[in-house]
Simulated scan of single mutants.
Amino acid sequence: MTETPISSRDNPIVKRLKKLAESARARRAAHMTLLDGEHLLAAYLDAGGRPHTLVRAASFDAGRLAPFAARCPQTKAIVLPDALFAELVPVATPTGVLAEAAWLAPPAPAAIQLVVVLEDIQDPGNLGAMLRTAAAAGATMAVLSKGCHDPWSPKALRGGQGAQFVLPMQQGADLVTWLNGFTGRSVALALAEDSDFYALDLNGPLALIAGNEGAGLSAAVCGAATRCAHIPMAGWIESLNASAALAVAVFEAVRQRRR
C-alpha cells in the first residue's frame, strides 16, 4: 500500500473531507460521506462499495489498514498527522481510520413486505439504530421524511453499523403521499391510542411508522395510516425511546411471521 503524506489544512483533499464531515449539504451534493473505523469500512467493502480515499492517522498502525487497501487497490491512500486527522473526525472517539465513500443504493425488491417509515427523527444515533434494527429484522425498505436527520452523516452511520449499505432507503419522502400509495397495511405507533399493538395481525405487506423523539407522529401521518396502536407498558414510564419502540414493533412482526 502506497500512502501519500499530507500535512497542510489547505490541501484540497483535506478541505473536501472536512466538508463531508461537517455539512449535510455537501454530502447530498456529492452523494459522498465519511466512514469512521475499520468495522464500517469492512461492511462497506462487503456490500460491494469501493471507497474513494482511505485516510489514516499517523499513529494508527499501517499494517491494520493494509488488508482493506488490498481489497480496493485503486483507492488513493493518505496519512495525516494526528492533530490534522482529529480535525476531520466527526465523532467523539476516533478510531484512526477514515474512508471517503460514495453512498450505496441497494435496489428495492419487487415485493415490499416490511417497511419502516420514520417521521422527523432528529438524533443521528437514534436514526442509525433504527435503520440497523430494520436491517436486522429483514425489512425491505426504510422511508424517511424530509425532517429526518441525514442518514449518511458520520454519526448516523456509526449508529447504523452498516445498515445504510444494505437497506434500501427513500429519503425526503412526503409520508402522507407515500402511505396513501402503499397497498399494504400501515400501523402508526402512537401513545394515545387504545388499540393494543400486540393484538394486531402483522402478517402480509406492512409499514410500521415511528415518529419524532419528542413530538411523536403528526396528526396527518397518523390519519394516513391504516390504524394507530400503542405498545402496552407496565409501571410508571410514560413512553419508550423512539428507537426502542420501533425495535419492539419490528420484531413482533418478525415473531408473528415465523409462526
Score class of each variant (00 low, 15 high):
residue 32 M to D: 13
residue 56 R to F: 05
residue 133 T to G: 02
residue 255 R to L: 02
residue 189 L to D: 04
residue 179 L to M: 14
residue 138 G to H: 14
residue 32 M to S: 10
residue 136 A to S: 15
residue 66 A to W: 07
residue 150 D to G: 03
residue 169 M to W: 05
residue 101 A to C: 13
residue 226 T to F: 04
residue 15 K to H: 10
residue 54 L to F: 15
residue 101 A to F: 10
residue 165 F to I: 01
residue 94 P to R: 09
residue 207 A to K: 05
residue 28 R to Q: 11
residue 93 T to G: 00
residue 224 A to P: 03
residue 235 G to M: 14
residue 56 R to W: 03
residue 254 V to G: 01
residue 97 V to C: 13
residue 147 G to R: 13
residue 230 H to K: 15
residue 59 S to N: 09
residue 240 L to N: 05
residue 207 A to I: 06
residue 15 K to Y: 02
residue 40 L to I: 12
residue 98 L to A: 12
residue 30 A to M: 07
residue 171 Q to C: 08
residue 118 L to C: 08
residue 78 I to Y: 10
residue 47 A to M: 05
residue 221 V to D: 01
residue 104 L to A: 06
residue 237 I to N: 09
residue 151 P to G: 06
residue 136 A to K: 07
residue 93 T to S: 10
residue 114 L to C: 05
residue 171 Q to W: 01
residue 21 A to Y: 15
residue 46 D to Y: 02
residue 13 I to Q: 10
residue 102 A to R: 15
residue 7 S to M: 02
residue 67 P to Y: 07
residue 209 I to E: 05
residue 244 A to G: 03
residue 185 R to T: 11
residue 49 G to R: 09
residue 195 S to E: 15
residue 112 I to F: 01
residue 257 R to H: 09
residue 163 A to N: 10
residue 255 R to D: 01
residue 205 P to L: 03
residue 94 P to T: 09
residue 41 L to Y: 01
residue 180 N to E: 12
residue 198 Y to S: 07
residue 176 V to L: 07
residue 166 V to C: 00
residue 17 L to C: 14
residue 178 W to F: 15
residue 15 K to E: 13
residue 27 R to F: 07
residue 211 G to S: 02
residue 40 L to A: 11
residue 60 F to Q: 14
residue 26 A to T: 07
residue 184 G to P: 11
residue 132 R to P: 02
residue 248 V to D: 06
residue 245 A to L: 04
residue 183 T to K: 15
residue 233 M to D: 04
residue 74 Q to A: 13
residue 93 T to N: 06
residue 240 L to W: 10
residue 204 G to R: 12
residue 118 L to I: 08
residue 34 L to C: 05
residue 6 I to K: 10
residue 193 E to W: 09
residue 210 A to F: 00
residue 50 R to P: 03
residue 66 A to P: 02
residue 16 R to D: 13
residue 243 S to M: 03
residue 104 L to S: 09
residue 152 W to Y: 15
residue 149 H to K: 04
residue 208 L to H: 08
residue 102 A to P: 03
residue 238 E to W: 00
residue 98 L to N: 13
residue 95 T to M: 07
residue 256 Q to F: 12
residue 147 G to F: 08
residue 191 L to A: 12
residue 170 Q to G: 00
residue 228 C to F: 00
residue 86 A to F: 06
residue 216 G to E: 11
residue 154 P to A: 13
residue 93 T to Q: 11
residue 249 A to T: 08
residue 126 N to S: 12
residue 19 K to W: 02
residue 106 P to Q: 11
residue 212 N to I: 07
residue 241 N to M: 08
residue 39 H to W: 10
residue 67 P to A: 03
residue 135 A to L: 12
residue 180 N to H: 14
residue 36 D to W: 05
residue 62 A to E: 14
residue 77 A to C: 13
residue 149 H to Q: 08
residue 236 W to I: 11
residue 106 P to R: 09
residue 36 D to Y: 08
residue 128 G to F: 03
residue 103 W to M: 08
residue 172 G to Y: 03
residue 251 F to L: 09
residue 183 T to Y: 10
residue 221 V to G: 00
residue 243 S to L: 05
residue 182 F to H: 01
residue 218 S to Y: 02
residue 89 V to C: 14
residue 74 Q to V: 01
residue 34 L to N: 06
residue 246 L to Y: 03
residue 97 V to P: 09
